[in-house]
Design a protein around this nucleic acid. Sequence first.
DNA 1: CTCCCGATAT
DNA 2: ATATCAGGAG
Length: 209
Amino acid sequence: MQRIDKIITILRKNSADSSTALRYKKPFELLVATILSAQCTDERINKLTPGLFKKYKGPAAFAGANVAELEKDVRSAGFYRNKSRNIIGASQKIMKDFGGRVPENMEALLTLPGVARKTANIVLSSSFRKAEGIAVDTHVKRLSGRLSLSKANNPEKIEKDLMKIIPKKDWLDFNYLLVNHGRKICHARKPLCRECRLNHLCHSFGKMV
DNA sequence: CTCCCGATAT
DNA sequence: ATATCAGGAG
C-alpha cells in the first residue's frame, strides 16, 4: 500500500463528523456560501445563510438585489463589500449566460466574479460530484506541506502536485478529509501531533513546537 | 504584493 | 487588548 493510500485510509477512518461543513440545499446555495466563506469559518457562514436564502430565493433574487442591503445581510462574513458585489455579479452572469443554473464545469465557474479554483472545486466536487481538480484551501495547503505532499507555496501548484499523487477516486473527498483533520488535530499554530493518527507517516512529526 | 474585514477565543 | 480564523481580485 502506498503512503498516500495509507494517509487517506486513516483519514477516512477518523472523519466521522462533518458538522462543521457548509450547509446548503442546492448547488447555487453552495456557490454563494462558498464565496462568502472566503477568509472566514464555515460555522459563521452557516449562521447567516439560512436567513439569507430565505430572503433571496435564488440567482434571480440575488441578481436584482440592492447592494447596500446585501452588504448588511452578509456583513458578519467579513469582506462584505467584495462579497456582495461578487454574489450579485455571479448571479447576474448565471442568469444571463448560464440559463439561471450554476455551470457544472471549471472553465465556466472561473468566469464568475469571486470564484477561483478553490471555490469552483468545492462546488464541482460537493454539489456535482465532479472531480476536475482538488480544492486547496488553507488547511489543504498547510497539511500538504507538513505531510510533504507538495513543497509548493502557491495553491495552484499545490493542486497540480496533489493531482499527480492522489488517486482520482479520492479527489472528491480529499479536501474535506484534510479540512476535518486540520480543524481537529493539525492546527496551524499548535498541532496535536501526539494524538495524530498520521504522525507515524508525517515528516513534520517531532519538528513542530 | 496589497487590499478587502468581522467574529470568536484567549 | 490581542491573536486566530482562512480566498480572491487588482
